[in-house]
Amino acid sequence: MGKKKPAWHFFTSGYLILVLLFIYLPILYVVVFSFNDSKSMISFEGFSLRWYEAMLENREMLESVKYTVIVAVIATVVSTIVGTIASIGLSKARPLIRSVVMEINNLPVLNPDIVTAISLMLLFLSVKIQRSIVTLTLAHITFCIPYVILSVMPKLRQLDDNVAEAALDLGANPWQALTRVIIPQIYPAILSGALIAFSMSFDDFVISFFTAGKDVQNISMYVYSMKRFNPSVNALSTLIVVAVTIVLVLANLIPALRERKNKKEEY
């Protein structure tokens, strides 16, 4: 490849740094103002931990975090399992059935959130199911599965069919063929599907707003219901930023470490 001029290199790095600055600006802003001594979001009036203290005393806010995590974890686990199994099944279906199911599967992805939200609300109301944490979780699973399938399906179709068939011919039952042969090969796609599902559920506002019942409120709903801005939310966001950073760094470090270990064993 052609040698890059220093000026060009300078330009590209500068551009990328600007983009990163843009993307991190509000996050930095939240972190800085979480330590603000006043409740202003415009001027910084000295360092204090009062909003962290206020956050720890705010049971409603902490509960919203708890419910957000519980719903996201359940939705991720269920949608990953159902989505993966469905993908494997669909990849062996007749093309017509597969394409019909895939089109329907795409609906929650394509449909505006508010349409999905309202359609689910109408469903729950019309069959007289009380909206609760259960309906909320069902709704989250529903919009998470399509992302898992969209992530797993392409990987599956790259797989060599013969391997699974060979395993069956060699006397493996379908369950063994699945767990020993197919799943290990598509594992990275399952993982990335699960990650997308988790972040979708964690971040959702509109669908939750219409499908949750009186017993549950997630972080988005809590933030949206604030009448006056409560800076404890800044403290909460800062802690979420820290937690997410740790998780993502670990998620990226662990495979790298494992790979290194594997390579060592190869030699």
């Binding site: 729950f124 009380q130 909206r131 009186k214 009448k227």
Partner: peptide, 22 residues
Amino acid sequence: VNYKTYESNEYLWLQMQAGDAW
């Protein structure tokens, strides 16, 4: 106390019609 909030009478009305037992 399970304390939740709403922002309009009309939204409250919708919730009541949905049968939420407050």
